[in-house]
Amino acid sequence: MTEEMISPPARVLDSDRGRIGRSIGGAVRRHVGGNVSLAIGIGIVGLMVLLAAFASVIAPYDPLKQDVANALLAPGEAGHLLGTDQLGRDVLSRLLYGARLDIFVALGSVIFPFTIGIAIGIVAGFRGGWVDSLLVGVIDVVFAFPVLVLLIALLFVLGPGILTIIVAITLVDWVAYAQLTRTSARRERNQEYILAARTGGIPVWRILLRHMLPNIIAQPVVLAFSDALLIILTITTLGFLGLGVPPPQPDWGTMISEAQPYLSTQWWLGVAPGVAIIFTGLGLSLIADSLAERLDAR
Protein backbone atom coordinates (compact mmCIF):
# COMPACT_ATOMS: atom_id res chain seq x y z
CA MET A 1 0.00 0.00 0.00
CA THR A 2 2.52 2.56 1.15
CA GLU A 3 4.91 1.79 -1.68
CA GLU A 4 2.23 2.46 -4.19
CA MET A 5 1.49 5.81 -2.67
CA ILE A 6 5.07 6.99 -2.45
CA SER A 7 5.92 7.31 -6.10
CA PRO A 8 3.10 6.79 -8.53
CA PRO A 9 4.85 8.25 -11.59
CA ALA A 10 7.79 5.91 -11.09
CA ARG A 11 5.52 2.91 -10.97
CA VAL A 12 3.68 3.84 -14.08
CA LEU A 13 6.85 4.36 -16.03
CA ASP A 14 8.29 1.19 -14.67
CA SER A 15 5.43 -1.03 -15.71
CA ASP A 16 5.42 0.65 -19.12
CA ARG A 17 9.00 -0.35 -19.64
CA GLY A 18 8.31 -3.94 -18.79
CA ARG A 19 5.36 -3.96 -21.14
CA ILE A 20 7.15 -2.42 -24.09
CA GLY A 21 10.09 -4.76 -23.64
CA ARG A 22 7.87 -7.80 -23.43
CA SER A 23 5.05 -7.15 -25.83
CA ILE A 24 6.55 -8.67 -28.99
CA GLY A 25 7.90 -11.62 -27.06
CA GLY A 26 4.49 -12.16 -25.48
CA ALA A 27 2.79 -12.41 -28.85
CA VAL A 28 5.26 -15.08 -29.98
CA ARG A 29 5.04 -16.97 -26.68
CA ARG A 30 1.28 -17.31 -26.94
CA HIS A 31 1.78 -19.18 -30.21
CA VAL A 32 4.69 -21.47 -29.38
CA GLY A 33 4.71 -21.78 -25.58
CA GLY A 34 7.08 -20.51 -22.91
CA ASN A 35 9.93 -22.98 -23.24
CA VAL A 36 10.18 -22.73 -27.01
CA SER A 37 10.04 -18.94 -26.94
CA LEU A 38 12.74 -18.80 -24.25
CA ALA A 39 14.91 -21.14 -26.34
CA ILE A 40 14.38 -19.05 -29.48
CA GLY A 41 15.22 -15.89 -27.55
CA ILE A 42 18.41 -17.33 -26.10
CA GLY A 43 19.30 -18.67 -29.55
CA ILE A 44 18.88 -15.28 -31.22
CA VAL A 45 20.70 -13.31 -28.57
CA GLY A 46 23.44 -15.98 -28.35
CA LEU A 47 23.91 -15.85 -32.14
CA MET A 48 24.18 -12.07 -32.11
CA VAL A 49 26.68 -12.15 -29.26
CA LEU A 50 28.75 -14.78 -31.06
CA LEU A 51 28.69 -12.80 -34.32
CA ALA A 52 29.72 -9.69 -32.41
CA ALA A 53 32.48 -11.48 -30.51
CA PHE A 54 33.97 -13.00 -33.62
CA ALA A 55 33.37 -10.00 -35.88
CA SER A 56 37.06 -9.69 -36.65
CA VAL A 57 37.17 -13.30 -37.86
CA ILE A 58 33.90 -13.39 -39.76
CA ALA A 59 33.89 -9.94 -41.31
CA PRO A 60 35.15 -10.21 -44.90
CA TYR A 61 36.53 -6.63 -45.01
CA ASP A 62 37.90 -3.90 -42.79
CA PRO A 63 34.74 -1.98 -41.75
CA LEU A 64 36.57 1.35 -41.94
CA LYS A 65 38.30 0.80 -45.27
CA GLN A 66 36.93 3.22 -47.84
CA ASP A 67 36.83 2.43 -51.53
CA VAL A 68 35.06 5.25 -53.27
CA ALA A 69 35.39 3.51 -56.62
CA ASN A 70 33.13 0.77 -55.36
CA ALA A 71 30.64 2.95 -53.48
CA LEU A 72 26.97 2.07 -53.26
CA LEU A 73 27.28 -1.42 -54.75
CA ALA A 74 24.15 -3.56 -54.66
CA PRO A 75 24.15 -6.69 -52.46
CA GLY A 76 26.17 -9.50 -53.99
CA GLU A 77 28.15 -7.28 -56.30
CA ALA A 78 31.92 -7.69 -56.37
CA GLY A 79 32.00 -9.98 -53.36
CA HIS A 80 30.13 -7.58 -51.07
CA LEU A 81 27.33 -9.77 -49.71
CA LEU A 82 25.27 -6.81 -48.50
CA GLY A 83 26.78 -4.28 -50.85
CA THR A 84 28.75 -1.16 -49.93
CA ASP A 85 27.82 2.24 -48.55
CA GLN A 86 28.37 5.74 -49.94
CA LEU A 87 32.09 5.56 -49.08
CA GLY A 88 32.53 2.06 -50.47
CA ARG A 89 32.73 0.37 -47.06
CA ASP A 90 31.46 -3.21 -46.82
CA VAL A 91 27.98 -3.15 -45.21
CA LEU A 92 28.18 -6.70 -43.83
CA SER A 93 31.48 -5.98 -42.08
CA ARG A 94 30.15 -2.72 -40.70
CA LEU A 95 27.05 -4.54 -39.49
CA LEU A 96 29.14 -7.13 -37.64
CA TYR A 97 31.44 -4.55 -36.05
CA GLY A 98 28.40 -2.44 -35.30
CA ALA A 99 26.88 -5.41 -33.47
CA ARG A 100 30.02 -5.69 -31.40
CA LEU A 101 29.84 -2.05 -30.44
CA ASP A 102 26.12 -1.87 -29.81
CA ILE A 103 26.01 -5.10 -27.80
CA PHE A 104 29.05 -4.02 -25.80
CA VAL A 105 27.47 -0.67 -25.03
CA ALA A 106 24.11 -2.30 -24.24
CA LEU A 107 25.80 -4.80 -21.93
CA GLY A 108 27.61 -2.06 -20.07
CA SER A 109 24.49 0.04 -19.94
CA VAL A 110 22.59 -2.82 -18.36
CA ILE A 111 25.20 -4.28 -16.01
CA PHE A 112 26.15 -1.02 -14.28
CA PRO A 113 22.64 0.26 -13.56
CA PHE A 114 21.58 -3.29 -12.66
CA THR A 115 24.32 -3.73 -10.06
CA ILE A 116 24.30 -0.21 -8.69
CA GLY A 117 20.51 0.01 -8.61
CA ILE A 118 20.05 -3.32 -6.85
CA ALA A 119 22.76 -2.53 -4.29
CA ILE A 120 21.27 0.84 -3.42
CA GLY A 121 17.68 -0.39 -3.56
CA ILE A 122 18.21 -3.40 -1.33
CA VAL A 123 20.09 -1.43 1.33
CA ALA A 124 17.54 1.40 1.33
CA GLY A 125 14.59 -0.98 1.41
CA PHE A 126 16.09 -3.04 4.23
CA ARG A 127 17.32 -0.09 6.31
CA GLY A 128 14.31 2.15 5.82
CA GLY A 129 14.41 5.51 7.59
CA TRP A 130 16.13 8.52 6.07
CA VAL A 131 18.23 6.42 3.65
CA ASP A 132 15.01 5.15 2.12
CA SER A 133 13.35 8.56 2.05
CA LEU A 134 16.38 10.00 0.28
CA LEU A 135 16.30 7.26 -2.34
CA VAL A 136 12.59 7.74 -2.95
CA GLY A 137 13.24 11.46 -3.45
CA VAL A 138 16.03 10.83 -5.95
CA ILE A 139 13.91 8.27 -7.79
CA ASP A 140 11.03 10.68 -8.13
CA VAL A 141 13.28 13.46 -9.39
CA VAL A 142 14.97 11.26 -12.01
CA PHE A 143 11.69 9.75 -13.16
CA ALA A 144 10.16 13.18 -13.47
CA PHE A 145 12.48 13.97 -16.42
CA PRO A 146 11.90 12.53 -19.84
CA VAL A 147 14.65 9.91 -20.14
CA LEU A 148 15.86 10.82 -23.63
CA VAL A 149 16.06 14.52 -22.88
CA LEU A 150 18.05 13.80 -19.74
CA LEU A 151 20.36 11.52 -21.71
CA ILE A 152 20.96 14.10 -24.40
CA ALA A 153 21.68 16.75 -21.80
CA LEU A 154 24.19 14.47 -20.10
CA LEU A 155 25.83 13.66 -23.45
CA PHE A 156 26.28 17.36 -24.12
CA VAL A 157 27.87 17.86 -20.71
CA LEU A 158 30.10 14.79 -20.83
CA GLY A 159 30.92 14.91 -24.55
CA PRO A 160 30.19 12.10 -27.03
CA GLY A 161 31.80 8.65 -26.96
CA ILE A 162 31.10 5.07 -26.03
CA LEU A 163 32.00 5.46 -22.37
CA THR A 164 29.90 8.59 -22.09
CA ILE A 165 26.87 6.74 -23.39
CA ILE A 166 27.34 4.02 -20.79
CA VAL A 167 27.88 6.53 -18.00
CA ALA A 168 24.89 8.63 -19.06
CA ILE A 169 22.55 5.65 -19.31
CA THR A 170 23.80 4.34 -15.96
CA LEU A 171 23.12 7.69 -14.32
CA VAL A 172 19.54 7.63 -15.54
CA ASP A 173 18.72 3.97 -15.47
CA TRP A 174 19.87 2.73 -12.07
CA VAL A 175 16.80 4.24 -10.46
CA ALA A 176 14.55 1.76 -12.25
CA TYR A 177 16.39 -1.15 -10.65
CA ALA A 178 16.71 0.64 -7.33
CA GLN A 179 13.01 1.29 -7.21
CA LEU A 180 12.07 -2.27 -8.09
CA THR A 181 14.52 -3.73 -5.59
CA ARG A 182 13.59 -1.30 -2.86
CA THR A 183 9.93 -2.27 -3.08
CA SER A 184 10.77 -5.98 -2.89
CA ALA A 185 13.27 -5.44 -0.07
CA ARG A 186 10.69 -3.53 1.96
CA ARG A 187 8.29 -6.40 1.52
CA GLU A 188 10.86 -9.08 2.33
CA ARG A 189 12.45 -7.41 5.32
CA ASN A 190 9.40 -8.16 7.45
CA GLN A 191 9.25 -11.75 6.31
CA GLU A 192 9.97 -14.11 9.12
CA TYR A 193 13.00 -15.72 7.48
CA ILE A 194 14.74 -12.34 7.49
CA LEU A 195 13.73 -11.73 11.11
CA ALA A 196 15.00 -15.22 11.93
CA ALA A 197 18.36 -14.47 10.30
CA ARG A 198 18.58 -11.24 12.30
CA THR A 199 17.80 -13.04 15.56
CA GLY A 200 20.46 -15.57 14.61
CA GLY A 201 23.04 -12.80 14.47
CA ILE A 202 23.81 -13.23 10.77
CA PRO A 203 25.68 -10.09 9.58
CA VAL A 204 23.57 -7.66 7.58
CA TRP A 205 25.59 -7.97 4.36
CA ARG A 206 25.13 -11.71 4.52
CA ILE A 207 21.39 -11.41 5.15
CA LEU A 208 21.06 -9.13 2.14
CA LEU A 209 23.29 -11.15 -0.16
CA ARG A 210 22.50 -14.73 0.77
CA HIS A 211 18.98 -14.63 2.18
CA MET A 212 17.20 -11.70 0.59
CA LEU A 213 18.80 -11.17 -2.82
CA PRO A 214 18.06 -14.65 -4.24
CA ASN A 215 14.39 -14.08 -3.49
CA ILE A 216 14.08 -10.67 -5.13
CA ILE A 217 16.54 -10.83 -8.03
CA ALA A 218 14.07 -12.32 -10.50
CA GLN A 219 12.19 -9.12 -11.28
CA PRO A 220 15.32 -7.02 -11.89
CA VAL A 221 16.63 -9.75 -14.20
CA VAL A 222 13.47 -9.61 -16.27
CA LEU A 223 13.72 -5.84 -16.31
CA ALA A 224 17.35 -6.11 -17.47
CA PHE A 225 16.40 -8.11 -20.54
CA SER A 226 13.52 -5.90 -21.55
CA ASP A 227 15.71 -2.90 -20.77
CA ALA A 228 18.56 -4.14 -22.96
CA LEU A 229 16.19 -3.94 -25.90
CA LEU A 230 15.22 -0.37 -25.05
CA ILE A 231 18.86 0.57 -24.60
CA ILE A 232 19.80 -0.74 -28.03
CA LEU A 233 16.96 1.32 -29.42
CA THR A 234 18.17 4.33 -27.41
CA ILE A 235 21.73 3.93 -28.67
CA THR A 236 20.55 3.72 -32.24
CA THR A 237 18.31 6.72 -31.66
CA LEU A 238 21.28 8.64 -30.32
CA GLY A 239 23.35 7.47 -33.29
CA PHE A 240 20.59 8.61 -35.61
CA LEU A 241 20.58 12.02 -33.89
CA GLY A 242 24.35 12.19 -34.32
CA LEU A 243 24.92 11.93 -30.57
CA GLY A 244 25.91 8.30 -30.54
CA VAL A 245 29.15 6.55 -31.27
CA PRO A 246 31.43 9.04 -33.02
CA PRO A 247 32.26 8.21 -36.67
CA PRO A 248 33.91 6.43 -38.32
CA GLN A 249 33.16 3.64 -35.81
CA PRO A 250 30.25 1.63 -37.20
CA ASP A 251 27.10 1.33 -35.16
CA TRP A 252 23.59 0.46 -36.26
CA GLY A 253 22.08 3.82 -35.47
CA THR A 254 24.76 5.77 -37.32
CA MET A 255 24.41 3.37 -40.26
CA ILE A 256 20.67 4.01 -40.49
CA SER A 257 21.25 7.71 -40.16
CA GLU A 258 23.85 7.73 -42.93
CA ALA A 259 21.63 5.61 -45.15
CA GLN A 260 18.84 8.16 -45.04
CA PRO A 261 19.58 9.98 -48.34
CA TYR A 262 19.77 6.66 -50.23
CA LEU A 263 16.60 5.03 -48.92
CA SER A 264 14.76 5.31 -52.26
CA THR A 265 17.68 4.06 -54.36
CA GLN A 266 19.91 1.88 -52.14
CA TRP A 267 17.28 0.85 -49.58
CA TRP A 268 19.36 -2.06 -48.23
CA LEU A 269 21.76 0.37 -46.58
CA GLY A 270 19.06 1.29 -44.09
CA VAL A 271 17.17 -1.97 -44.04
CA ALA A 272 20.18 -4.16 -43.12
CA PRO A 273 20.92 -2.49 -39.76
CA GLY A 274 17.18 -2.09 -39.19
CA VAL A 275 16.65 -5.81 -39.53
CA ALA A 276 19.60 -6.45 -37.22
CA ILE A 277 18.01 -4.24 -34.55
CA ILE A 278 14.61 -5.87 -34.90
CA PHE A 279 16.14 -9.34 -34.79
CA THR A 280 18.17 -8.64 -31.63
CA GLY A 281 15.22 -6.88 -30.05
CA LEU A 282 12.99 -9.84 -30.76
CA GLY A 283 15.46 -12.15 -29.04
CA LEU A 284 15.68 -9.95 -25.94
CA SER A 285 11.94 -9.50 -25.86
CA LEU A 286 11.40 -13.27 -26.03
CA ILE A 287 13.77 -13.86 -23.13
CA ALA A 288 12.31 -11.08 -21.01
CA ASP A 289 8.75 -12.20 -21.59
CA SER A 290 9.21 -15.90 -21.02
CA LEU A 291 11.30 -15.28 -17.89
CA ALA A 292 8.61 -13.00 -16.52
CA GLU A 293 5.97 -15.56 -17.39
CA ARG A 294 7.87 -18.27 -15.51
CA LEU A 295 8.27 -16.10 -12.44
CA ASP A 296 4.61 -15.14 -12.48
CA ALA A 297 3.65 -18.78 -12.60
CA ARG A 298 5.45 -19.45 -9.36
Partner: peptide, 20 residues
Amino acid sequence: QRRAVQMVFQDPYSSLSPRM
Protein backbone atom coordinates in the same frame (compact mmCIF):
# COMPACT_ATOMS: atom_id res chain seq x y z
CA GLN B 1 23.48 -12.08 24.41
CA ARG B 2 22.00 -12.74 21.00
CA ARG B 3 22.62 -16.46 21.25
CA ALA B 4 20.95 -16.68 24.65
CA VAL B 5 17.54 -15.52 23.42
CA GLN B 6 16.15 -17.25 20.32
CA MET B 7 12.79 -17.37 18.66
CA VAL B 8 10.37 -19.79 17.01
CA PHE B 9 8.30 -17.92 14.46
CA GLN B 10 4.64 -18.14 13.63
CA ASP B 11 4.48 -18.94 9.96
CA PRO B 12 6.58 -21.91 8.89
CA TYR B 13 5.86 -21.07 5.26
CA SER B 14 7.73 -17.79 5.44
CA SER B 15 10.17 -18.30 8.30
CA LEU B 16 12.66 -20.47 6.41
CA SER B 17 14.95 -18.96 3.80
CA PRO B 18 13.32 -20.25 0.60
CA ARG B 19 16.44 -20.55 -1.55
CA MET B 20 18.76 -22.11 1.00
